[in-house]
């Protein structure tokens, strides 16, 4: 249950983080607004690594032992952010939210099977219902 509660908390954090990022972008410009997030998080993470006595994981040999493609998550995230801005400007927020969520959940189901061997028809149906419900809630929200 702790994992589900953490996932729910993750959703709350994503919303607040998004609003704060938008405000940072408004104050500092889009690029600088995104950069302050990465800058702060990088140095704070570094501090926490040393504070928790895990500095050994920053050794060059340890870093080199990890396959290069595993480091590419943040590159994927950056490209996603750019594509989402382009797509949202040419469509609207509702279409943007639903399509990105569809792509996100679709690939997540595939990668869960590839990386962790997790697949369940009923779970996938549940994800589809959440997607459908989200579309209905967002549509009703936009109509208010």
């Amino acid at each position: 249950m702790i994992y589900y509660l953490t996932a729910l908390l993750n959703g709350f954090l994503v919303t607040v983080n998004r609003l704060t990022n938008v405000e940072a972008g408004r104050r500092f410009g889009t690029g600088n607004g995104a950069l302050i997030n990465y800058l702060e998080a990088t140095f704070l993470s570094l501090f926490l690594i040393f504070a928790t006595g895990s500095s050994g994981e920053l050794s060059p040999s340890r870093i080199a032992s990890v396959p290069l493609w595993i480091y590419l998550g943040s590159v994927a995230g950056l490209i996603a952010q750019i594509l989402q801005i382009i797509g949202t400007l040419k469509t609207n927020t509702l279409i943007s939210s639903i399509l990105t969520l569809t792509g996100n959940l679709g690939i997540a189901v595939v990668l869960d099977h590839v990386f962790y061997g997790i697949f369940s028809i009923k779970k996938t149906l549940g994800i589809f219902l959440i997607l459908l419900g989200t579309a209905l809630v967002e549509k009703a929200r936009n109509a208010r």
Binding site: G73, G77, A80, Q81, I95, S96, T100, G103, N104
Partner: peptide
């Protein structure tokens, strides 16, 4: 643009999975 947005979502999913890896 719909494909671009789908692609953005897929990349977000890839990001989550790679970060977990």
């Amino acid at each position: 643009y719909y494909l671009i947005l789908l692609g953005a979502g897929m990349l977000q999913g890839i990001m989550n999975s790679l970060n977990a890896k």
